[in-house]
C-alpha cells in the first residue's frame, strides 16, 4: 500500500538528505489559535494598562494614571499583601501535607490503597462546586456550628474578618492537596526499593530514611509541585469569588479578585489591566526563579529521568 506511487522512494530519499521533516504549515492551526487568544491578549493587557476603558466604549490613552492609581489605591495595595500572605501560608500548609500524604499513598499496605481512593475525591469537584459546598457547610446557623455542640467549632467562619482568611487557606488546601499528593505518590513509587532497604540495613529509622532517601529522590517533583502551588496561588479566583467575593469588607479581596471587581464591577478596565500585568510579571518571575534555583529546566529533566 505504501509503495503505490513510483516516485515515492525517490522523493523520500531527497527528504532524508535535507532532513526537513513534515511541513511547518501543520503548525499553523495551533500557532494561529495560540497567537490570537493568548499572545495578543498578553500584549493587549499591557497596552490596556495605559488606557481608560469602561468596558463598552472605545479605549482612550491615559498615560500612567492607571499605574499611579494601582500603586496608591489602598484596596489594591491590601490585595497585594493578602495575595502574598495567602501564597506563603497556602504553601506552608499544602506542601508538607501533600508530601506526607503522597508518601503514605505510595505504601504497599492494602488499607492505604483504600485511603488513596478516598483522598482523590475532592478532585471530582470544580472550584465553584467546592466554594458553594463549603459556604453551606460553614454557615453559622445551619452548618458545622450546629453539628457539634463545641464552642470552638461554632464560629461565623466566613463572616469574621479574623477567621475568614484562614478558612480560605484551609479550603484551598482541601482542594489542591489531592492533586499534589498524586504527584508525590508517583514520584515516591519511582524510588528503587533497594535504596530504602539499604538505608534500613544501615540502621536508619523511618524519619531518617524520609529525610535522607525519600526527600532527595523526589526533589524534581518538589520543584514542579512548588512552582504549581506558588504560581497557582496567584490565580485563585473561582473559589474565593464564590465563597466570599472578597468579603467581609476587603478581608479576602486577593489580587485576581481585585482585578475582576475593578474591571467588571467598577468598569475600570485600565486599572484592572495594570493589576493583570502585575500578576503576569510576578507569575513569570516566580516560575523563572524556581527554575533557576533548581538549576535545570524541570519539565525537561523530569522526562530525562523517566
Amino acid at each position: 500500500m505504501l509503495m503505490k506511487s513510483h516516485t515515492a522512494p525517490v522523493r523520500s530519499r531527497r527528504r532524508l538528505g535535507t532532513n526537513i521533516g513534515p511541513s511547518t504549515w501543520l503548525l499553523a492551526p495551533a500557532l494561529i489559535f495560540f497567537a490570537i487568544f493568548a499572545l495578543v491578549p498578553l500584549l493587549g493587557v499591557a497596552v490596556l494598562s495605559f488606557m481608560h476603558w469602561d468596558g463598552l466604549g472605545t479605549p482612550s490613552f491615559a498615560g500612567l494614571s492607571n499605574w499611579q492609581q494601582t500603586f496608591t489605591n489602598p484596596v489594591t495595595l491590601n490585595a497585594m499583601w493578602l495575595t502574598f500572605a495567602m501564597t506563603v501560608l497556602c504553601y506552608l500548609t499544602q506542601a508538607p501535607i501533600s508530601i506526607l500524604v503522597g508518601v503514605f499513598m505510595a505504601g504497599e499496605q492494602k488499607y492505604r490503597a483504600v485511603y488513596s481512593v478516598l483522598y482523590f475525591l475532592p478532585l471530582l469537584f470544580s472550584a465553584a462546586a467546592v466554594g458553594i459546598a463549603f459556604k453551606a457547610l460553614l454557615d453559622p446557623n445551619f452548618g458545622l456550628s450546629k453539628a457539634f455542640n463545641i464552642a470552638l467549632l461554632s464560629q461565623d467562619w466566613l463572616g469574621s474578618t479574623d477567621l475568614v482568611f484562614y478558612v480560605l487557606i484551609f479550603v484551598i488546601s482541601w482542594c489542591f492537596v489531592p492533586f499534589h499528593s498524586l504527584l508525590y505518590q508517583a514520584a515516591v513509587k519511582q524510588i528503587p526499593t533497594s535504596m530504602n532497604e539499604a538505608a534500613m540495613l544501615d540502621g536508619a529509622g523511618r524519619v531518617r530514611t524520609f529525610f535522607s532517601v525519600t526527600l532527595p529522590q523526589i526533589k524534581y517533583t518538589v520543584i514542579t509541585s512548588s512552582t504549581l502551588m506558588i504560581v497557582g496561588s496567584l490565580t485563585y479566583f473561582d473559589l474565593v469569588f464564590v465563597m466570599t467575593n472578597g468579603g467581609p469588607g476587603n478581608a479576602t479581596r486577593i489580587l485576581p479578585l481585585d482585578m475582576y471587581l475593578t474591571g467588571f464591577r467598577s468598569y475600570q478596565m485600565g486599572a484592572a489591566s495594570a493589576i493583570a500585568v502585575i500578576l503576569v510579571v510576578v507569575g513569570l518571575a516566580v516560575s523563572l526563579l524556581l527554575n533557576r534555583f533548581s538549576g535545570t529546566d524541570q519539565m525537561e529533566s523530569q522526562q530525562e529521568g523517566a
Partner: peptide, 16 residues
Amino acid sequence: GIAIPIQATIIPVYYM
C-alpha cells in the same frame, strides 16, 4: 505559554 495565567488576560480576551 504555560506560564501565562489565564486570569491575567481575561480583559483583552473579553474585548476581542
